[in-house]
């Protein structure tokens, strides 16, 4: 940077800051999307709990009542 004058150096710094800000913004978006996806995926996983209880109860019922458990 020895040959550059102060204004050039400042311009470079400004550009660098803008680049970093954009990256940080991108990281925040990624973070938000990760959080949203994380909880979204827990929902179908927890529906499997329901499927499990369903199967469990149907199996534990006698033939004449197994459909009512569904």
């Amino acid at each position: 940077m020895g040959d550059k004058n102060v204004e050039e150096q400042l311009a470079e710094l400004v550009a660098k800051v803008a680049e970093l800000e954009a990256a940080a913004g991108g990281a925040a978006v990624t973070n938000t999307m990760f959080a949203e996806t994380f909880y979204y995926l827990t929902i179908p996983l927890m529906i499997i709990i329901h499927a499990g209880f369903l199967a469990y109860e149907m199996g534990a019922s006698r033939l004449r009542t197994c459909c009512h458990r569904v």
Binding site: I48, A51, Y56, M58, C66
Partner: peptide, 21 residues
Amino acid sequence: GHNMPLTITGLMLIIVGFFGF
């Protein structure tokens, strides 16, 4: 109950769902 395999499979599915919970 009328179906022990179904009961056991159901319980195992609950374990799967537990990871989500």
